[in-house]
Design a protein around this nucleic acid. Sequence first.
DNA 1: CTGTTAGCGCGTTCAT
DNA 2: ATGAACGCGCTAACAG
Lengths: 355, 355
Amino acid sequence: MKQKLPTIKEIAQRLNISPSTVSRALHDHPSIGLRTKMQVQKLAAALHYEPNQTAIFFKQRKTFTIGVVLPELTEFFFSRAISGIEDIAVKHNYNVLFGQSHDDVEREKQIIIAMKNQRVDGVIASLAKHTRNYDHFMALQKYNIPVVFFDRVPSLGSVHKVSFNMTQGTQEALLFLIGQGHRRIGVLNGPEEMRSSKQRTDTYQNVLQKKKIKIDLSLIVSTDLTKEGTKKAMQELLSRKPRPTAILAINDYVAMDAIQFVRAAGYKMNEDICFVSYANLPITSYLDHRPMASVEQYPYEQGAKAFEILMQVLAGEGSQEPYHTVEIDGRLIVHEKSLTGPNKPAAVKTPKTSA
Amino acid sequence: MKQKLPTIKEIAQRLNISPSTVSRALHDHPSIGLRTKMQVQKLAAALHYEPNQTAIFFKQRKTFTIGVVLPELTEFFFSRAISGIEDIAVKHNYNVLFGQSHDDVEREKQIIIAMKNQRVDGVIASLAKHTRNYDHFMALQKYNIPVVFFDRVPSLGSVHKVSFNMTQGTQEALLFLIGQGHRRIGVLNGPEEMRSSKQRTDTYQNVLQKKKIKIDLSLIVSTDLTKEGTKKAMQELLSRKPRPTAILAINDYVAMDAIQFVRAAGYKMNEDICFVSYANLPITSYLDHRPMASVEQYPYEQGAKAFEILMQVLAGEGSQEPYHTVEIDGRLIVHEKSLTGPNKPAAVKTPKTSA
DNA sequence: CTGTTAGCGCGTTCAT
DNA sequence: ATGAACGCGCTAACAG
């Protein structure tokens, strides 16, 4: 049995006053006599009275709780993002309820339903890898639960979203590689459902065109992000004639798998082939052979920004519009050298254009 | 304004029946006529009726929500653990509210208070690094909110806890090193407040004694887990005469910092010195110079187990006792070789006993 | 300044 | 087989 916690009613009885007086006294309502106020607050403290939030939530139709839906918590990007969300949420006295979709659309739907029933005040979400239908999220809008997407956002105009400016980071990355003398640049892209994959492809074409470099679309291949998928994709890329001398990989995890593969295949890193990637995982600083540079995506800031937008929408009671769309600029972080000391790779030479 | 969601009362009015009938119909109560039941369920579906959980929570004094308090979500161990918790929680139709203490005791207290007010059904927690006073957690017990600790558990008998069997894993690790011929084994230990630090020290002494190896306590040093702290600790260790030929590090992160340092200082990994550690981070498989072996701590399983215990306690209504204490055995995972191909380190030779 | 009343949405008696 | 009534704890509207 749950032990009975003190309630306003109890305090009222003990003091022979009415519950509403107690309520007001606890809230420092101006129209309460100093004497009674003191009495009430003293007794409340003595009994360790704490308001029952479930009752308040129920009455106020507000839970001060937001739901966060993510694909995978163990991915650094997402754990860092939710960390940002939680940090800001705490400052605003909000609680965070979370669920991970594990990139499973069905589970994503289930989580959304649970959150709707919980009456969360709002939702922050990053889509599952293959989510193409957004009905379950749109349902939330109908119930006046605002949704702010981040990173993996739907391709719709009529939503709030914080997305990563793929163009900016990708341009920097490609210009860096071109500056290093590369002309055959391969792309280890993500699944095609992901918006970012198309954006990367588009930017690739634009940049190369502007730099008057011949565009070979066969240099763009997709990986399903698994180690096996990446290996297959790399094999394809290496089979191109002439083979690419540099690879732009969707993220550091994929880059690490790819690097492992090409090294095992006998290629010399940063001589035969080199990598540039996204995510800028701190952990790569421990690698002897890491991507030469990586586009920082600022997950913490993306999460924090998403929360701020949610607050704004919640403050703007009901009027969903205008839709907030924030783009976070990436920044290419060039890794000057391996930090691991004597065995660092040789300085980058201008790569040969063919094997 | 929140849009008005359909309620039982509304359905009742539209059908000219009483709310209680609707409630019963929706719950498949046996005493409801098939006709009315169908009617109700059909209308409910049409209106997209969903019960208001906040009302139910309030009435049932049960929120089907558990709170999870962790030091740092971005640490792989913890994100993996909470992942385990959430996976099981979803299966039991529980929601997960979480907060991170960032190893700050004050914030830990604040989170606990918030969770108490939220009336979570139970709490799963891993302590902040320097938490030595457990009053805020004990307060929860008073409100009949059970707490299950995991990994970083308090040194009290009267709590539910899932802890890591430091002895088991440490023995395996030390025997492994001794088997490789090492006699001077250093320990990069954690802060002394952490229970695990003392356990590691104790096991160290026991194992060496049993193996009739001279014990030199100056070979045990503490790091505050920062890169700087680890560097200082390693410097101390390397200054011992004769210097240790192997290091047992508190976790892979610390080991990586230490390895980076010793390599920069010119030591040859796995010849001059080698490392064994804890955590078995997947990411280390990408390192050219990683710990020779690492003790797997099964964070996912620890989280899942903690949740199961919480369920048991919740089922056992009120009777906190007996206190559940589960120990998870570690297992030393020996990394046969670097996976990164041709540049793998030479096979381990019996190390020299001095520099 | 304070008390009374009412109601949030639901499930659960207790009566028909 | 169904309805009426009640109460969870709190706040707010409406008296006084």
